[in-house]
């Protein structure tokens, strides 16, 4: 508030308009211009709703400030000296509203938003390779070698790397950053394993399920029909899947989440 008081020349009403306009431009500058990722219109509408409410709340915090804000509007209607102004404003405002309604009524050509859950709850057990796996207790059979036999562990990681480079890098990228050569042509984009939001948060059993059953193995809330993640039990052996999981954690330096009893 103090900064606002320092520039008393700008009327309060104009200040409100300036602040809201400024925030809007800020959004546009950051997302459209810099990041090149425009915010979808519907989302922008929601953000701006909160911004406008917030700004109005700040500007009407005290009775005095409310009065200052409302006064010019009131004067417009009450003060006979401003009658000409009033007539202009009274035509412009409905005109603007009518225009907004008209534009709103135009059929939209913005694609519908597709929301999906990235990490849905896994089923408690799944059938993979013709066997039933209990995902609650399933563990990577090679993980213990990390402590018990580091040399053999290295070999398994290397084998996992070979599986990865032959099968996965096209989409997930050879830096495991989700930016493989074909990633841009897919929607949803292949996940970035370097990110702390993916495998770093997951258990190895979750990965086993996801890799073995791929996009079509997802539950509905995760939109299985658009995921291009292949069903790897069609191409890889059980051992290879566990090896590639070792590689994912080894290359990124993440640790798998565990139940905490080991």
């Amino acid at each position: 508030m103090s900064t606002i008081k320092k520039i008393p020349k700008i009327p309060r009403l104009a200040q409100v308009v300036l602040v809201i306009g400024g925030i809007y431009t800020g959004f546009w500058l950051i997302f459209d211009l810099f990041l090149g990722q425009p915010i979808p219109k519907s989302l922008m509408g929601m953000y701006m709703f909160f911004v406008v409410t917030g700004v109005l709340m700040v500007f009407t915090a005290t009775e005095e400030s409310t009065r200052q804000l409302v006064h010019p509007i009131q004067a417009l209607a009450e003060d006979p000296a401003r009658r000409r102004w009033r007539n202009v404003v009274f035509l412009v405002v409905p005109g603007l509203v009518a225009m907004a309604v008209f534009l709103q009524m135009q059929p939209s050509d913005e694609a519908p938003l597709e929301l999906r859950s990235i990490h849905p709850a896994p089923p408690s057990s799944v059938k993979i390779f013709g066997k039933r796996f209990d995902l609650m207790s399933l563990k990577n059979p090679y993980r213990h070698l990390q402590k018990d036999d580091p040399e053999q562990f290295r070999e398994l990681v290397t084998a996992g790397g070979e599986v990865y480079i032959r099968n996965c890098q096209y989409c997930h990228g050879d830096k495991l950053d989700g930016k493989g050569p074909y990633a841009q042509g897919l929607n949803p984009v292949p996940l970035n394993f370097q990110d702390i939001g993916t495998i770093a948060q997951l258990q190895e059993s979750f990965l086993f399920w996801r890799i073995a059953t791929g996009g079509p193995g997802l539950p509905k809330e995760a939109t299985p029909w658009i995921s291009s993640m292949p069903i790897w039990q069609d191409f890889l052996s059980e051992e290879q899947i566990w090896q590639v999981i070792l590689y994912l954690y080894d290359y990124t330096g993440h640790q798998p989440r565990s139940w905490g009893h080991d």
Binding site: P94, G95, V97, A98, F102, M105
Partner: peptide, 13 residues
Amino acid sequence: PWLFAGFAFVLIL
């Protein structure tokens, strides 16, 4: 759209 825009204009006025 014209219809609704006209309606909005009159209402606000």
